[in-house]
């Protein structure tokens, strides 16, 4: 599997990272190096093996369905680059 510049551009967009067109060839080549390394996994016989979901065999604990935190809009917003009137502010999302 070889990654071309078009695929690299698509992946960058999916990851929401702006990549300049002149950077794409180098990026595609790095992807190919890393994916080439990963391709080794195709040698392994994984027939009948379940993909690991949890490294320690434990059931997730349950808790009471009650509110345990909240009521601190000021703390939630304190690190926002732009917060107005108790909300996060972002550029226009819909036309």
């Amino acid at each position: 599997m070889s990654i071309d510049e078009g695929t690299a551009a698509k992946v960058a967009h999916l990851a929401r990272i702006k990549v300049e067109p002149e950077e794409l060839p180098a990026l595609a080549s790095e992807f190919n190096t890393i994916l080439g390394f990963i391709e080794q996994l195709n040698e392994v016989d994984v027939e009948g093996i379940e993909p690991m979901t949890s490294v320690t065999p434990q059931r997730l604990k349950r808790r009471e369905d009650t509110v345990t935190a909240g009521g601190h809009p000021d703390k939630v917003l304190s690190n926002a680059p732009d917060a107005r009137e108790g909300f996060f502010a972002v550029p226009k999302v819909v036309e």
């Binding site: 992946v11 990272i17 990026l27 990963i38 996994l41």
Partner: peptide
């Protein structure tokens, strides 16, 4: 950036089984 994009790629439609699920199986081994 490189790792985020590699991660995005191995999780993307069409490659999830070939890369991510296979890796999770090898991890089990």
């Amino acid at each position: 950036k490189r790792r985020v994009m590699v991660g995005t790629y191995v999780l993307s439609a069409g490659f999830y089984d070939a890369y991510y699920n296979r890796a999770r199986k090898v991890r089990a081994l």
